[in-house]
């Protein structure tokens, strides 16, 4: 990129990465257990479920929209798979769940793109709908799952690496590639950077908007399946805070909420900032409500980083 960027500008751009590295180093000093292979694999596989959802969310945010329904969809598809497995087996039920995720995306996208409704409001509504459906399907109780396929998906490993991580890694690479190297990815960025400009350039803006919600819906459904595999049960209430924490990861990474700027790498960094933080806090036996408070404070620092680094730059200019 621009070779003349100074150190200050670099730091400003990579703020999340710096925080991640700092957190990583601090954690490895704070707890001897942190740097063990077991713990790191555990950390990544726990992050991978929200990670998959965050990949889908990245497309939505890049196109200038938001999807609040991912948590509810996540819970719904878990419960759905749990209910369907006794009826039609693991394969078919997973396909049905993912197809429903895609269908939900089509609906949301259509409302947003064609009727020009605000995606915040639309997905708030679909969130309630899927919450209700999940509760209905499960009688408001967690549903046990006993299925070897799903078990292998959630807890199995290939070449010593958990299947969950494989799924996440493959999807990450695909998403990164699509955004960087394809027309599709390029046009998503254009739509998010300026829908009007994109329209005048001949891009079918509504198709792209619908497509990002489909991607997000599929990712959320897949995340639900992965989660129920990991826990061997599906709970209708797991997705309560998912949407917000996923959006937070995306934004902390540096993808702009106003659309167009950012990408997959940023999202992955943002995701692991929180993954490392909560992992090391757990290792240090910090109670979970304190963890939440600390995470909130870290978030403020990251978001306020821009301001501070600008102040620092101004101060150093004055000093010269």
């Amino acid at each position: 990129m621009n070779r003349t960027l100074g150190v200050g500008a670099f730091i400003r751009k990579q703020r999340a990465l710096l925080i991640l590295v700092a957190g990583f180093i601090a954690s490895s000093f704070a707890s001897p257990y942190f740097l063990t292979a077991d713990n790191l694999l555990n950390l990544v596989s726990q992050a991978s479920i929200n990670g998959v959802i965050a990949l889908g969310m990245t497309f939505v945010v890049l196109s200038g929209e938001l999807d609040l329904s991912v948590g509810a969809l996540n819970a719904f598809s878990g419960v759905l798979v749990a209910r369907l497995i006794p009826v039609c087996g693991a394969g078919a039920s997973m396909i049905i769940a993912i197809a429903l995720g895609a269908l939900a995306g089509v609906g949301t996208g259509w409302l947003v793109a064609r009727l020009h409704l605000n995606s915040f409001v639309v997905t708030l509504c679909t969130m309630f709908v899927f919450n209700g459906l999940a509760l209905l399907l499960s009688d408001s109780r967690p549903v046990e799952i006993d299925n070897p396929v799903l078990g292998a998906l959630g807890t199995g490993a290939v070449l010593g690496v958990p299947v969950l991580i494989w799924i996440f890694a493959v999807l990450c690479a695909t998403a990164w590639y699509v955004l960087r190297y394809t027309w599709y990815g390029r046009n998503v960025l254009a739509v998010g950077g300026g829908a009007k400009v994109a329209e005048l350039t001949g891009i079918a803006v509504h198709r792209y908007k619908i497509s990002v919600f489909v991607i997000s819906g599929v990712c959320a459904a897949l995340g639900g399946i992965m989660l129920s595999g990991l826990l061997s049960s599906a709970s209708p209430t797991v997705g309560g805070s998912t949407a917000l924490s996923v959006i937070t990861s995306v934004v902390v990474g540096g993808t702009s909420l106003s659309g167009g700027e950012g990408g997959i790498l940023q999202t992955v960094v943002g995701l692991f900032v929180f993954a490392v933080l909560s992992n090391s806090l757990s290792l240090l036996n910090v109670p979970s409500f304190n963890q939440t408070i600390i995470e909130g404070l870290v978030l403020v620092v990251v978001v306020g980083w821009d301001y501070f680094s600008r102040r620092m730059a101004a101060l150093s200019r004055l000093a010269n």
């Binding site: 390029r186 046009n187 254009a190 950077g193 400009v197 994109a198 005048l200 167009g260 700027e261």
Partner: peptide
């Protein structure tokens, strides 16, 4: 400003977005 340019996307992207097939 509002209809012609993606102000915060690199210039090359702005130029080529009208006809991606030419550069792919």
């Amino acid at each position: 400003k509002n209809e012609g340019l993606l102000l915060s996307h690199p210039m090359y992207m702005n130029v080529t977005m009208t006809r991606l097939p030419k550069v792919s």
